[in-house]
Structure formats: structure tokens, C-alpha cells
């Protein structure tokens, strides 16, 4: 059925407003990152930069002893190592667990319930003893211990989503394999894992984005270029006395680039994953 013309016009108008709402804050961040300091400290502002200036990016990405670049590049590296380690550890232990919880459900479902429950509790409930323990064992400011801490949020998330994905793999396929006399390893590696691959990739990407995003634990448990992650460096830049807005903006653009690009590429899979988080069709 066709909608009246005025409805269509209103709809297009609403869509234009929506696009402006979504794009303008981030576009302004990008513009700030390539503006000169002078353009960003005039009243009223210069909306279109007088010249495109990439020096902020260059400064952030150039290594030099004790320079801002060194801190930023280390943070980039730390963010990557921490996120990758946390997600690898989590997937390694949750893939077999998710399979077992799916295939041999029953009382063990309680474990899944506990995982989902603890995933939703505030980090503030865990961070105090974590802090004390990390100090006692001299594990503060260390990417690997931060990755273990991240498992407290990544691991429950992974087992939750993976379990519901294993549910979708028909058990009959495994049965055929059992009749052929295959052992557990064969069943997992030859049947389950290949079928689980697309879901596994989605879960891994979502978990990586979560770890990349994490600020609270990183702020508490890291203090130098040894382990500080990007969110901590950016938060320090933003709340410090730093008045070079183009530099802060450039750091933000660089930190957003990986998740935004991955998000755009894997959009379909991500949305399916996000929705599966709570709403099963």
C-alpha cells in the first residue's frame, strides 16, 4: 500500500536529521584531528580548516625516547596484545566448555547461568581484591595480568554466545561420526569446529572490540608505557591540561579506526551476534 506523499517527505526529512545526528559529532572529531591548533582556538570556530594538517597523527605515530609518540605507539601495541591474549585464552577454554554445555545440558546449565550473571555485575565488585592481589604478586602494570583480568568479562561473554551457536549445529552430524568410531577429538575438530567457524569469528571480533574498549581495569592496573592501553592514554590526554585539541582528536580517530572499520566490514555478522546476545529468533 502506498503512503501519502507528505508522509514520505517527513520520512526523508527524518532520515536526513538522523544522518546529521549520527555523522556530525564524529565528522567534527575527524576535522579537528586534521586542523591546526590555531583554527581550533579561535572564537567563533573555523569549521573548515584553513589547511589540512596531519602533524598530530605524525607526532602520535613517531617513536622517540620519552616522546608522546612512544607512549601512544606502546599503548597501541599494549591494547592489541592485551585484547588478543584475553580473547585467545577465553576462546581456548570456552569452545570445549560451550560444546559440553550444549550437548550435555542439564544441571550444568547452572554454570552458564552463573557466567551470564557474573558478566553483568559491575567491575567495581571485583576490582578491589584484584588490585590487592596484583600488588601483592607484583603483577601491576603488566599486559599479561591485565589480559587475565579481562577474562572476567570476555570469558563469560564467549561461553554464553558460543553455547547458543553450538545449539544450532545438529547433533545427528556428530552421531554419524560416533557410529564411525570417532573419538571426542575427531568429533570436535572434524564436525563441530568447522561448522562453528563463522560464529566463532563473530564472537572473537565482538570480544576483541570489548577488550579494546575496556577502560576501568586498565586505568586501575596500569601506570606506564609497559601496559597502559589506548583508552587510558586517551582519557589522560582528554582530562589533563592538554590544550592541543587536534592532538587529542587524532588519538581518538586512531583508536576508533580499527573497531569502526571492522564494524563496517562485518556489519551483518556483528548485528546477528549482537541480537543473539539476548534475542533469539
Amino acid at each position: 500500500m502506498r503512503k501519502p506523499l507528505y508522509v514520505r517527505i517527513l520520512q526523508y526529512l527524518a532520515m536526513v536529521l538522523l544522518v546529521i545526528f549520527i555523522i556530525s559529532p564524529f565528522l567534527w572529531l575527524v576535522i579537528m584531528s586534521v586542523s591546526t591548533s590555531a583554527d581550533l582556538t579561535t572564537k567563533p570556530l573555523r569549521w573548515i580548516p584553513s589547511q589540512i594538517d596531519f602533524s598530530s597523527f605524525k607526532e602520535l605515530l613517531t617513536m622517540g625516547d620519552n616522546s608522546r609518540g612512544e607512549l601512544f605507539v606502546s599503548a597501541l601495541r599494549n591494547s592489541l596484545t592485551t585484547a588478543l591474549s584475553a580473547v585467545s585464552i577465553s576462546l581456548l577454554v570456552t569452545v570445549p566448555a560451550a560444546w559440553l554445555l550444549s550437548r550435555y545440558s542439564g544441571k550444568k546449565n547452572m554454570i552458564l547461568g552463573i557466567a551470564i550473571f557474573t558478566f553483568m555485575l559491575p567491575p567495581i565488585a571485583y576490582c578491589i581484591p584484584m588490585y590487592k592481589t596484583l600488588v601483592r604478586f607484583k603483577l601491576m602494570d603488566n599486559s599479561f595480568s591485565l589480559a587475565i583480568v579481562y577474562c572476567s568479562m570476555i570469558l563469560p561473554f564467549c561461553v554464553w554466545l558460543l553455547k547458543s551457536n553450538v545449539d544450532d549445529i545438529p547433533f545427528e552430524l556428530e552421531e554419524a561420526c560416533i557410529i564411525d568410531g570417532a573419538g571426542l577429538w575427531d568429533r570436535l575438530v572434524r564436525i563441530v569446529l568447522p561448522l562453528l567457524m563463522p560464529a566463532l569469528a563473530t564472537v572473537a571480533i565482538m570480544a576483541l572490540i570489548q577488550a579494546w574498549d575496556e577502560y576501568f581495569y586498565a586505568m586501575l592496573f596500569t601506570s606506564s608505557k609497559n601496559a597502559m592501553t589506548l583508552p587510558v592514554v586517551i582519557a589522560n590526554l582528554a582530562s589533563g591540561r592538554q590544550s592541543r585539541y587536534n592532538l587529542i582528536a587524532a588519538a581518538g580517530v586512531l583508536a576508533s579506526a580499527p573497531p569502526v572499520i571492522i564494524g563496517m566490514i562485518c556489519q551483518k555478522a556483528l548485528i546477528r551476534g549482537l541480537v543473539a546476545g539476548g534475542v533469539k529468533e
Partner: peptide, 12 residues
């Protein structure tokens, strides 16, 4: 475009 705000890190 909806994915953009979601993908921008909270701190950014």
C-alpha cells in the same frame, strides 16, 4: 551508518 556510534570506543 548505525554501526558507527556503536563502534566508537566509550572513552573516545
Amino acid at each position: 551508518l548505525l554501526i558507527l556510534p556503536w563502534a566508537v570506543p566509550t572513552i573516545v
